[in-house]
Amino acid sequence: MKKILDNPSVALGLVIVVIMAVPALFAPLVSSIDPTAMAPMERIKPPSASHWFGTDLFGRDVYSRVVHGGRTSLLVGLTVAAISIVIGMVIGAASGYIRVIDAVVMRIMDGLMAIPSLLLAIAMVSVGGASLTSVVVAITLPEIPRVVRLVRGIVLTIREEAYVEAAVTAGTSTVAILWRHILPNTIAALIVLASYIGASAVLTEASLGFLGAGISPEIPSWGNIIAEARVSFQIAPWILFFPSACLVLIVLGVNVLGDGLRDTLDPRLAKKM
């Protein structure tokens, strides 16, 4: 653990992520203003002492919205990373180890990968409605094949190893072999991949919001705030600037962290990702 933290990228990435995540986690404490409360007469006011980041087109407090929006964005990033890793790990391990299902599963994964992820996500949000759940599902689905391919690749290499073959000969059950011998070997790669998926999920959420196919605009998220700020960005650049800056910083932090983890945990991954 100490060794990991010694890597300057990991340390820098962690610092950025923590600085960005803490206000989001404690949003209600950091900002006492209701992020959805409207004051129609106070619309489009530049940053001031009472509104640090100014007000938006509805007279809502941009600072409060950015802080609360961070919660949504982080939630999306974490959930997408967790779900796609878990599902991808199960499918990938099964596919790499059990010949029968491999062909079918990999054709479906090929199919999913061939559909442009953003278009797929837009279509899925139009099916499921603009809810947090459907956005998470829409972003997760195209990420799964990436995890499946990685895990399957590792499994394919490891199952040829002598100790695995020994376990098979000794009559250990397939599930036990997967659990005890194979999955532990995928952890390092998966942690790194998870960080990349999380970062790209935060970006995709913002892109979907930007294209008007994101989370219900009633819930503040960085994507929603940026989308609403589009029309007015020449007269009120602050509405666009603050959430964009936060978005760039957190994604940057997670990416730097991911690069650092990759270099310390498994340098060979550099070419695979």
């Binding site: 139009s126 409605g129 603009a130 008007g212 196919a213 219900s216 605009p217 009633e218």
Partner: peptide, 9 residues
């Protein structure tokens, strides 16, 4: 229950 959707929906 504030339901966001597109005009088509």
């Amino acid at each position: 229950d504030h339901q966001a959707m597109d005009w088509a929906t």
